[in-house]
Simulated scan of single mutants.
Amino acid sequence: MERKKLIDQLPVWLRVSVYFIVIVGAAYIGGVIPTLDSVFYYFGIAMLLSLLFLKAEVKPLTSLGFVPTCAADWKNFFRGLLIGILALLTSAGLTIWLNGGRLVFTGHVDPVYLLILIFIHLWSSFAQEFTYRGYPFQRLLTAYGPWVAQLAVTLPFAVMHLKLNSSVTWQQFLMTWLTTGLGSILYGICYLKTGKLILSIGLHFGWNVVQALVPRSPEEGKTMLFALVQDARDYHPLNVLLPYLGVTAVMMFFIWKSNCLQKAK
């Protein structure tokens, strides 16, 4: 009871700050100790923090809305999956076309590797959505509204995508904040629209798994399915950024205006 009173007395911004300080600290440790640097490690930290805060607030972990409980949830997952797949393919297609490249099918498909890849990205997408659109986003949303919740989560979400134990320029940091921040807002819109994490998990998964199979730049070069044939001298980063910005904006508008993506009863 005393712990519940203590938690209740803390403002939401302080609870969320403590949550993200621990997450960022764990990410730094994971960068220093490679054996810890895994999705399981980060998810375990987020799960523990969420359990501690929710227990003090006398709320179950499932209140975060990550468990499908009805047919509408499963429909939202597969709708998100389809949107994510189509969006990445559109962004990749525009990028490759603008940079004057082309994809060549490798002719080699390893079903076991493909299944492992699917599992890894499904798990990673779930862990990221639980960590960032779970307890911290939902508490900020309830206390301060959608604008504060959306913008506040973009920074730690960007930091997660950086290697904290290596030097990062301000330009690299701001570019990461811009790109991942837009993604964070997109996934936040999924939660605002449906009241659960299911849609954002599906969309995140669809985007990431196809991104792992379709190379868009000389650095990515070749995946299990495709090789990118392109003169590196013709490559321009803006041709990656602009399609991404455009496709993300379209997804935001479509999801927000869609009548088929309603909150589950």
Results as ranks from 00 to 15, higher is better:
14 L>T: 13
23 I>Y: 05
26 A>G: 10
30 G>N: 06
32 V>Q: 10
32 V>P: 04
37 D>R: 15
42 Y>D: 08
43 F>P: 11
44 G>E: 08
50 S>V: 12
59 K>F: 03
61 L>W: 01
76 N>L: 02
76 N>Y: 00
77 F>M: 02
84 G>D: 06
90 T>L: 15
93 G>R: 07
95 T>R: 01
95 T>K: 01
95 T>G: 06
102 R>L: 05
102 R>T: 08
103 L>M: 02
103 L>P: 05
108 H>A: 14
111 P>E: 00
117 L>P: 00
117 L>Y: 00
123 W>H: 04
123 W>R: 03
123 W>L: 06
124 S>E: 06
130 F>K: 01
130 F>I: 03
135 Y>V: 10
136 P>M: 09
138 Q>L: 09
142 T>I: 08
143 A>E: 12
145 G>Q: 07
146 P>D: 08
147 W>N: 11
160 M>T: 07
162 L>G: 01
164 L>R: 12
170 W>S: 09
173 F>T: 07
175 M>V: 09
184 S>P: 13
187 Y>T: 14
189 I>E: 12
195 G>E: 05
196 K>P: 13
196 K>A: 12
201 I>Q: 00
203 L>S: 08
204 H>G: 04
206 G>E: 12
207 W>R: 01
208 N>V: 13
210 V>K: 00
212 A>E: 09
214 V>H: 11
218 P>W: 02
218 P>V: 04
224 M>E: 03
226 F>D: 00
230 Q>D: 01
232 A>I: 12
234 D>G: 09
237 P>Q: 09
241 L>V: 15
243 P>Y: 05
248 T>N: 12
250 V>E: 01
252 M>P: 02
254 F>I: 15
259 N>Y: 00
259 N>R: 00
260 C>Y: 13
